[in-house]
Write a protein that binds this DNA or RNA. Structure first.
Lengths: 229, 229
DNA sequence: CGGCATCCGGGAAGATACTG
DNA sequence: CAGTATCTTCCCGGATGCCG
């Protein structure tokens, strides 16, 4: 049957507001939408990867969101070339441009007293947080190539003094590599947890130039929490 | 009876994600929340004003949102001093800091092919859009004090070359004043509609230095629309 | 298994009526 | 004017099943 959601044009749950911010809410205001975009921020991903990294989203909702975001022109479905022949979802160039807005939202919200940094964290969230909280003042011209192996997902961060670039890539050529789950790495960077502690627990492995790693984790100051009144 | 939403702690509709962006969605991800914040961006407002400016929100939902935002520390309820003695809602300092994120969302979303600038617009949206789209390149050191009377709401924008400051204030001391509804002003600024056109229609009145007004409306270039594939 | 449709229960949003 | 109470409608989330 498939009725194709006939109402179509009159779908009626929009804001009817010319403001760009209201438009943004039409585009990514539904539950999970913005987090789907976040997960795609470092390149194409498969349905199952998205579902796994967005702890708790159900398959039908993910399907809906991917469809809506594709219709909005924020992402596209694409077939990886043979022999892979798997379907992936990838942001459009405009979709990638939402990163600034996503980062600003995160930067603002992280100051909430309710923010709990000990909750689970996806690999993409962690990498994105580096771009958000990077302090060029603390980096002060420093340069390094830092790798990450986060349970199957691999990234390389290149600190070049002014900025940090992060891409999905094989970290084997990096100066130093963190190997652990995202929460563990986050506890080093944002919780000032000693490396030895995590290593003793068996949840972290550092390979390469350890001194660089020790410096790296100091580059990302969190914004101050809001005072509770 | 009022059961007081017993589930309380286990309410379960959160994202369970340490990412700041996910936290932002907890705080302002519910329908209408971010637009309520937007409406408060230029100072305290009353319940009825908010309801009127957010075309279409129902009273019970607005009540819920105001309660939630207050609990989150984003806004506070406050009694204006006697003899006004009316209740108003006002952003906390941290609430005001969300402006950057709101602007970035708007800037990004305005590039959507689906964005329709002819829809209704609140006064706060229009004023906020000035801060979003202001081009210091076009202003090029120019200075002016521009007033707005938007159906009872009054604002003054001060262009000082580098930036534009907008506050709620009596525009009678401004160099020039726009008097009309927000949609009309928007059509001048973003639609390049001739002043004479709107004046002839009786929806616009310019008082003061008209040349300043003509220049003012050129300072706010819209970002290019995304190409439709 | 990846992707998507369908059915269902609970809860949030919308509209309206009502109260101090 | 500032909300509250109530009812309806719609969306979210889970389970299940189909099909490649």
């Amino acid at each position: 049957m498939k009725l194709e959601n006939v109402t179509e044009v009159s779908s009626k749950r929009w804001y009817d507001d010319a403001c760009g911010t209201a438009m943004a809410l039409e585009l990514i205001g539904e539950r999970w939408s913005l987090l789907v975009v976040r997960e795609l921020m470092f390149g194409p991903r498969r349905f199952g990867e998205l579902k796994a990294d967005l702890g708790g989203i159900s398959a039908n909702v993910l399907t809906q969101r991917l469809g809506g975001l594709a219709r909005a022109g924020i992402l596209t479905r694409r077939m990886l070339p043979s022999p892979a022949s798997v379907q992936v979802y990838e942001l459009t160039p405009w979709g990638y441009e939402s990163e600034t807005a996503i980062r600003e939202l995160g930067r603002w919200a992280a100051r909430s007293p309710a923010h709990d940094p000990t909750l689970p964290l996806s690999a993409a969230s962690l990498m994105l947080s580096f771009r958000t909280t990077f302090s060029r003042q603390r980096a002060d011209g420093w340069t390094a190539l830092v790798g990450f192996r986060l349970g199957g997902e691999e990234f390389v961060g290149r600190v070049d003094g002014d900025w940090i670039h992060v891409v999905r890539a094989d970290p084997s050529a990096a100066d130093v590599t963190f190997d652990g789950d995202p929460m563990t790495i986050a506890s080093l960077v944002y919780g000032a947890r000693p490396f030895r502690d995590a290593e003793a627990a068996g949840t972290l492995q550092i390979t390469g130039n350890r001194a660089l790693a020790e410096r790296f984790v100091t580059l990302f100051p969190l914004p101050d929490k809001v005072a509770v009144e």
